[in-house]
Design a protein around this nucleic acid. Structure first.
Lengths: 399, 399
DNA sequence: AACCATTAGTTTAATATCAATACTAATTCG
DNA sequence: CGAATTAGTATTGATATTAAACTAATGGTT
């Protein structure tokens, strides 16, 4: 959770940290830069960069790589994140189970685990998650690495000022301080602990762990039992918009059909009444005990299924276009379990989005929309990304 | 236009500017603070604050005010913005005319002018605006003050990377570099020149010129011929979300009724087909030559008018609720010419918004929704605010 | 009224950071 | 093999903040 800047004033110590962060961020986003490249990019002198890199190397954040090709001069030494020394943990509590990852500074997954679980109490969930995380910790031999912390993604809005899950309708939870429940089961897990909404964590990870060209902003849409989204604006540090009550991104409850069907939230015509796991279940009479995706995949050719998915897909297309005209992100990433249903659902959505997004400005370049077919560990990995970001950009002195 | 931070590294000069900005911002937001208050708030030492205040006083940005009440010690000296030494200019090019303001550092309007004008070419508009601004400059005796610059608000999306108005459907303009057209007519107007979308400028001004408690984020909804909006996230410096193509906030083209009426953008069921100046005109057969508001105000009791406005108001309510569930701002400000129609339009909108916004989280505190009945100069003043912000937070060395 | 405690603000010396410069190191090209 | 070029390091210097001591101004107490 990148700290939202307060009234920004700073001392020399702050300045040094700022420059360390900026340099680390540069190497993170563009692996293989040399000291000279960094000096140019960050507008610092070679001397300053040199000293800073020195200490980042000594502390194990960076490693030196190969020599770069020279074009008539001393070749520079490439710099990379040192992925051997640290480990980040991420977890997602979902409606259908728990997902856990351990990953490196660059977001590479060292180990992961997926455990099915029917919704139960927060206490039982925390205990199980604790046990699974302990197992994961031994699997990655956490003694060999410095553990930077744990991020937990949860299926509902989080209070913006304190780590409380305000509501998780699909779990039947309300006002849960999940980290406090989890901590007794994981006394040995050091570092930053944080929690966030599942779609926001996913959005953050999709943006933060990208290298090379990074989009100016990004929205992740999570289409599963419900529909959520998260937006990152990449303003160094990347900023997650949470909303004053943590409700930003609750696009499943934007109204697409005034006077339409009743939603479980009590309102009428919410997007979730047109596209969501439970709407598709209702339309096709699929019981809650059955796995929606597993049930549907063999039935995709059935006309009844095709119709239901096309209708849902059309609504999803409207939802995406509305995001485009409300937030206009540089990229949209579509994930969540429903993407596994493929073209019957996605083709209508993508077609609508692509053919209508340039209505206002005429033919400008299209906003890329990327579909993630297997988004199993996206949110867990994103929560781990938030741990790293909070260390790099926060007021912590570890970095 | 606050500069979006690049890869943030900095030297001592940068640090000093940062602290100067932070201190100036503190006084701007909380007039009457003492040096000691500032040292506490900004986490700087008294020495640093003292030196910095000294130079801000000498350069005319601040003035010392009254002594504060003491509670058993030397009383502090209140500090305020010095509103005597500078002037900001702002202008709005609207569908029905030009609006101009000259204002102080605190946003107080020194002089203003409203000129009716039927849509014409950018060149003619620029020439007229130039003349009116010159007149305003002499009116505020600009020789007595340092002119900090001019902001121009325009009714359409602006390219995010360069000062180009991409489209203004209601003026019939496309890809206009308005500032370049204006500059020859105002060679004597010094300082920063910038332009922005009308709703974004308004949003910025409503946030930036507020003192005391400042909302964490704010959306301004401009309901006039079309419907636009702008969002400010107050992350020091306050950040306007523009979107990768400048389309953020184009909520008039979010779809509220899939398969509904055709909008002039070519899509179906856009919000503007349900609530906007031109929709109300169409519903009540009011010709374009007539002033919509002036025509309707005496007719508000007519059943036909009541029905049309109630329908539009209901759609506006849905739009506001969708903003709540997408961006969840800490405050919504509703302005634009349509607010002058009062309760027949606004009551249904506000009722719907207020009674449905706590669906998800249950009874939490309401998000305040403030209606501005007379928003004539809001956008022009907001554009002036952007000039000030770009000086305080930008890389400019004036401050 | 004199004095003390308290808080505001300034001055001075010390410290820390980055910049500038000069330097060494390693490569290509002729 | 040497000149040119670029990478990276070491030394010195400029500058911003800090810490600590100091002056200033007020309220309360004796």
């Amino acid at each position: 959770m990148p700290t939202s800047n307060q009234h920004k004033a700073g001392d020399l110590h702050f300045l040094k940290r700022l420059n360390r962060s900026a340099i680390l961020e540069l190497v993170r986003r563009s692996p293989g830069l040399t000291r000279a490249d960094i000096a140019t990019e960050a507008q610092l002198t070679k001397a300053t960069v040199g000293v800073c890199i020195q200490s980042l190397l000594e502390q194990g954040w960076l490693r030196e790589g190969e020599l770069q090709k020279s074009s008539g001069g001393r070749p520079g030494r490439a710099l990379h994140l040192n992925e051997e020394r640290h480990v980040l943990f991420g977890a997602e509590v979902g409606v259908h189970g728990l997902r856990l990852v351990a990953c490196t500074l660059a977001g590479h997954v060292l180990a992961s685990h997926h455990e099915h679980l029917v919704p139960t109490t927060p206490e039982v969930t925390a205990e199980l998650l604790g046990e699974l995380l302990r197992r994961l910790m031994s699997e990655v031999r956490v003694k060999d690495r410095l553990c930077l912390g744990l991020g937990v993604a949860l299926p509902g809005p989080i209070a913006p000022d304190k780590p409380v899950l305000r509501l998780a309708p699909n779990l039947g939870w309300r006002d849960i301080r999940f980290l406090e429940l989890l901590r007794p089961h994981l006394p040995q897990l050091e570092g930053v602990w944080l929690m966030d909404n599942e779609a926001k964590a996913a959005a953050f990870g999709e943006h933060y762990f990208r290298t090379g060209h990074v989009p100016e902003s990004l929205i992740y849409v999570s289409a599963g039992t419900g529909i959520g989204s998260g937006m990152v604006v990449g303003s160094h540090p990347p900023l997650l918009t949470r909303g004053v009550q943590g409700l930003a991104g609750e696009i499943g409850h934007t109204i697409l059909q005034p006077g339409g069907l009743y939603c479980h939230c009590g309102n009428r015509g919410c997007a979730e009444t047109l596209v969501s796991g439970w709407t598709i279940r209702a339309a096709l009479s699929i019981a809650e005990e059955e796995d929606l995706i597993a049930t549907l995949l063999p039935r995709l050719e059935e006309p009844e299924v095709q119709v239901a998915l096309r209708r849902a897909g059309e609504a999803l297309g409207v939802l995406l276009l509305n995001l485009h005209h409300t937030q206009n992100p540089a990229e949209i990433v579509l994930g969540g379990s429903l993407t596994q249903l493929g073209d019957p659902l996605l083709a209508p959505a993508l077609d609508f989005f692509k053919s209508n997004q340039s209505r206002l400005l005429g033919t400008t370049q299209q906003v890329p929309l990327r579909v993630i077919q297997d988004s199993t560990f996206i949110a867990a990995r994103g929560a781990a990304a938030q741990v790293l970001a909070s260390l790099i950009h926060g007021s912590n002195d570890l970095i």
